[in-house]
Amino acid sequence: MAKSITQEFVKGLWAEIPPFRLVLGLCPVLAVTKTVENGIGMGLATTFVLICSNILVSMLRSIIPTKIRIACFIIIIATFVTVVELLMQAFTYPLFLKLGIFIPLIVVNCIVLGRAEAFAFKNPVIPSTADGLGIGVGFTLSLAAIGLVREIIGTGALFGVSLFGADYQPFAFMVEAPGAFICLGLMLCIMNLVGNK
């Protein structure tokens, strides 16, 4: 292995940060980022699934037959998603209600399946863990960043605390559906501007 474990971790934070660099898993990114809190919750749930599925896929990589690997990945991922679903139902019920069907939909999140296929299936356990952690943290950070922009502009408040005083007219467009697309598009543009220098 030429790359060290830290490198595997760090690449998820900038060079391959989802959803900006790898344009995958956009559905939760657009749907749950109305507030920072939702964004972070969703990010952490996805991170948990990513790390666990990466570890298990990597451990079983010599047993899983190549032909039916996708089906095996999906079962492994679905198992961990069910775990997260039940855990969140038990301990963070209000957040569970807010995120709604997007928790079970982590199963079909292309990032998780993508990492299992592109990385964990070809690499040993420890780099795979680092990769899952890196991509997961990157994903959480992006969700939080988009949530931050949308919550501040769209409601004029952060974590329920008003920021600009009573005179501020909330730009509610940002927390609605079209605002999500445009906000993400503009953030992608800024990433391109900064990154391509």
């Binding site: 697309f181 445009i182 598009g185 503009l186 992608l188 543009c189 391109n192 391509n196």
Partner: peptide, 22 residues
Amino acid sequence: PKPLQDTSIGLITAGIIAMAFF
């Protein structure tokens, strides 16, 4: 413009179509 190309402009277009559906 270069930084807006591909996915970025795609998302903004999708936002404008979403406005119509809104």
